[in-house]
Structures are given as structure tokens and as C-alpha cells.
Amino acid sequence: MRVSELVARSGIPLPTVKYYLREGLLMPGESTGATQARYGEEHVRRLGLVKALASAGLPIPRIREVLRLIDHPGDSMFEALGQAIGQLPPYFDPVEPAADEEPFPRARAAIEKLGQVYDPRHTAVRQLDRALEALEEAGVRMTDENLEAYGKHIRGIAEIEIGQMPTGSTADAIRYAVLGTVIYEPVIAAMRRLAHQDIAQKRLQDSEEQDKP
């Protein structure tokens, strides 16, 4: 397909497509002349991925790193997946703890209470620790009951997602994991709020019915 069709298929303006080509986020097409090139389905897929990552707030260097891991994942799928997910927001400035200090005490306690693997190298460990710290600063405590409930249901979601992850290709697995995280986390957050609304409305209605003479 010509670049005009690539623009139409991807929904990305031509100047942006050219910018992605210059930045190396989109691989060059097959040259068919001095100023023309032919593009294929892989270019459409790559633009879709870049568009999703850019919409999620990833800066160009982090998008480039995700694409590098997809194109050159190395020998370990597990390590490549962790590195790719580590490029997704939120981002934190690195803080070096003292030699005798536990770097993420809140996260470690929560993860170990759930019986999960604690690996301080994973970006989500820092994210969890900061989130739990923010709860404390707001005067809210993560109770064991809440932690157990969240852990149980979130693990159920994760099991479904990991079960559907393609394993025949590391590149496909990384693409699936990154896109799944970027696209589905807003869906999960919205569904949680809608569940709050539904449950609250029904409980209030039941309460009003009981209060009627």
C-alpha cells in the first residue's frame, strides 16, 4: 500500500507518520522510487502500537525502548516482558535506599502477605509501595481484609490475561502484554467505578424501602 493508504488505515496524520519514520518508531517501507515506498500490514500494526503507547503518555524514548524489546527481545521472555512493562507509566525518580534499609517495605509486606513473588527490580513494586505510602499520608490504612479481597480478584483478572497471552513468539507476547496493560487498565478502572455506582444505588434504594412506613 502507498503512504496515503497507510494514513487512511491507521488514522494517523501524514506528518505524524513521517515523524515516526524519522524517529525510527516506524520501519521504512519498501522503496519503489526516489520518493515513494510500499507499506504492508506490519506497518499498520506498528502504527497502532505506537499510537496506543503515545496516547497512554509514553514519551518517545520509552516507546522506542518498547519497540526495541519487541524487535530484539533477547533470550528470556520473562526478562523482556518485565523490561517492557517497566516502560509504562506512572514513573518515579530513582531513590537509592541506605545499605541497611528495605527499599520498599510496604510493598514487600503486602506482596508477601498475598503469597506472591517479591522482586524489587519490578517497576510495579515501587508503584505499589508509593501507592500504599500515599494511603498512609491520607490517613487511610490498607486493611488485611481489603488486601486479601483486592489480591484475590486482581489475581483472577491476571490469570485470565496471562492465560490468553501468546507464547509462541516473545515479540507477540510483549506486544500483547504492553497493549493489554495500556488499553485494559482504564477499562478496569471504569468498570470498578460503575460497580460502585450500581451497588451504592441498590443499597440506598433498599435502605429507603426499609425506612418507608
Score class of each variant (00 low, 15 high):
Met1Asp: 07
Ser10Thr: 14
Pro13Asp: 15
Val17Ile: 15
Lys18Ile: 07
Tyr19Leu: 15
Leu21Asn: 03
Leu21Met: 11
Leu21Gly: 04
Leu21Tyr: 08
Glu23Leu: 15
Glu23Trp: 05
Gly24Ala: 01
Met27Asn: 06
Met27Arg: 14
Pro28Arg: 09
Pro28Thr: 03
Thr32Asp: 01
Ala37Phe: 05
Tyr39Gly: 00
Glu41Ala: 14
Glu41Gln: 14
Glu42Tyr: 04
His43Lys: 08
Val44Asp: 04
Arg45Leu: 10
Arg45Pro: 03
Arg46Ala: 03
Leu47Asp: 00
Leu49Asn: 04
Val50Trp: 13
Ala52Glu: 13
Ala52Lys: 04
Leu53Lys: 12
Leu58Arg: 01
Pro61Arg: 08
Arg64Leu: 03
Arg64Gln: 10
Glu65Asp: 09
Glu65Met: 11
Val66Leu: 12
Leu67Tyr: 07
Pro73Gly: 05
Gly82His: 05
Gln83Tyr: 07
Ala84Thr: 04
Ile85Phe: 14
Gly86Phe: 06
Gln87Thr: 00
Gln87Phe: 06
Phe92Val: 00
Pro94Ala: 01
Ala99Gln: 05
Asp100Cys: 03
Pro103Val: 03
Phe104Glu: 00
Phe104Ser: 01
Arg106Val: 02
Ala109His: 09
Glu112Leu: 12
Glu112Asn: 07
Gly115Ser: 06
Val117Lys: 13
Tyr118Gly: 02
Asp119Thr: 02
Arg121Ser: 15
His122Thr: 08
His122Ala: 14
Thr123Cys: 11
Ala124Cys: 07
Ala124Ser: 13
Ala124Val: 13
Arg126Lys: 09
Arg126Ala: 13
Arg130Tyr: 14
Ala131Met: 14
Glu133Met: 06
Leu135Glu: 09
Glu136Arg: 05
Glu136Leu: 06
Glu136His: 09
Ala138Phe: 14
Val140Trp: 08
Met142Phe: 13
Thr143Val: 01
Thr143Tyr: 07
Asn146Glu: 14
Glu148Cys: 00
Ala149Arg: 12
Ile154Pro: 00
Ile154Asn: 03
Arg155Gly: 15
Met165Gln: 09
Pro166Arg: 03
Thr170Ile: 15
Thr170Gly: 01
Asp172Val: 00
Ala173Leu: 08
Ala173Ser: 14
Ile174Asn: 02
Arg175Pro: 00
Arg175Trp: 03
Tyr176Arg: 02
Ala177Cys: 06
Val178Trp: 05
Thr181Asp: 12
Thr181Cys: 09
Val182Glu: 08
Ile183Ala: 12
Tyr184Glu: 10
Pro186Phe: 12
Val187Arg: 06
Ala189Gly: 01
Ala190Ile: 04
Ala190Arg: 11
Ala190Gln: 11
Met191Cys: 02
His196Gly: 01
Gln197Glu: 15
Gln197Ser: 13
Asp198His: 12
Ala200Lys: 08
Gln201Arg: 10
Arg203Phe: 15
Leu204Pro: 02
Asp211Val: 06
Lys212Asp: 10
Lys212Ile: 01
Lys212Gly: 12
